[in-house]
Design a protein around this nucleic acid. Structure first.
Lengths: 200, 200
DNA sequence: TAATATAAACCGACCGGTTGGTCTGGTCCT
DNA sequence: AGGACCAGACCAACCGGTCGGTTTATATTA
């Protein structure tokens, strides 16, 4: 039991060290030896827990994807009107940015790798399509109940996702810049209000 | 004279080959030997024209940055009202996407590299800030002449840039997807109309 | 015009160093 | 005892970059 626990511990250490290295230097530029050194673990231990360097990366992809999924799911159905739900959705980004906590460049690494590695692409593109479909559905509901203008739901969903992705990239390039959590909230709210029905 | 011309020719061939390799496999994963092979050039020729592999990358960054700059500048001042100018700005993305022509993943490589290499960062961040400032100024003008709602100009500019960046990333991940030129136009138009004054 | 000089363009073998991954030998818990 | 777990020496392959030498095109001279 305690034996079992020890293995999980080193596995976590390897994962954390890999995340740090990949964030700082990128996937290709960081060697297995470097990860091992930072994790305080030998190469033997590394290859005992993971079959390859790519496997560690894949595990990290999985981990972050779930981290994004959770607050997103939590926001759904929490509000009453569709409009409020969309606005609330905008607030989701804040915890996401907070969670990333200086590891935002990892996302760039994810996407870059996804663009060239079919396996990473598969793991990335599926949740991405789910996100987009969920947003589109929300917009459709909003249009149906009159709280949103009659915009193209697919285009609107694409816009929302684009904003999120674009913000992440900019945050990666300018980490010392604005408070990206609040900024993201403001920007998304701008788009949301633009789509809102012009009643009041 | 013809001698001179020959040198420029191989230089261009190296640049093109490097762009292709970087697009497909990424900066770190492509060796100088591979670039040389694809360019039909020896290693000696390579290092005759460029001091290092990074220099080739920097040259590509410069090249693409100018490619984005040109149509952007062309769109400014072309329209009469500020509102039309902003809408026209949205149409700029189409030629940009067309120009990228299957080399969109290169942008991901730019940003990834910019996030970790100070020299690339410098070359990337300066035009980026210029874009953002120009957009903010446009929005300010639009608000002043009453064609736009009283949104936060900085937030609006950030939103525009984010949309563009996010679209590029998505296009890199899903090259076979939509016609990204038209899609980008539709999405940007959505944001623009959301910011437009609610008169009519 | 033919011979020579000069410099840019180019070639490819070569080098030190690094990489992802393997393997053997041991330790520790149950 | 025995299997999960780990240490670290080791290896073939590869990498960015160098270097001495050759080719090619123009300028100069005789």
């Amino acid at each position: 039991m305690a034996h079992q626990h020890r293995g999980d511990e080193t596995r976590k250490r390897i994962l954390a060290a890999a995340a740090e290295c990949f964030t700082r230097a990128g996937y290709d530029a960081t060697g297995v030896a470097e990860i091992c050194a930072r994790a305080g673990v030998s190469k033997g231990a590394f290859y005992h827990h993971f079959p390859s360097k790519q496997a560690v990366f894949l595990a990290l992809v999985e981990q972050w994807l779930q981290g994004v999924d959770a607050p997103l799911r939590a926001a759904r159905g929490a509000q009453e009107t569709t409009r409020d739900r969309l606005i609330g959705l905008a607030q989701v980004v804040e915890p996401v940015f907070a969670m990333a906590q200086g590891q935002i460049p990892m996302f760039l690494e994810f996407w870059r790798q996804a663009a060239k590695d079919p396996e990473v692409w598969q793991a990335t593109i599926e949740p991405y399509r789910r996100f987009r479909a969920a947003f589109a559905e929300l917009v459709r509901e909003g249009i149906a109940d009159g709280s949103l203008r009659a915009v193209d739901p697919e285009a609107a969903a694409l816009a929302i996702v684009s904003l999120g992705v674009g913000l992440v990239v900019q945050a990666a390039l300018d980490p010392a810049g604005d408070d990206w959590g609040r900024t993201a909230d403001a920007v998304l709210r701008l788009l949301m209000e633009g789509m809102a029905a012009r009643d009041r």
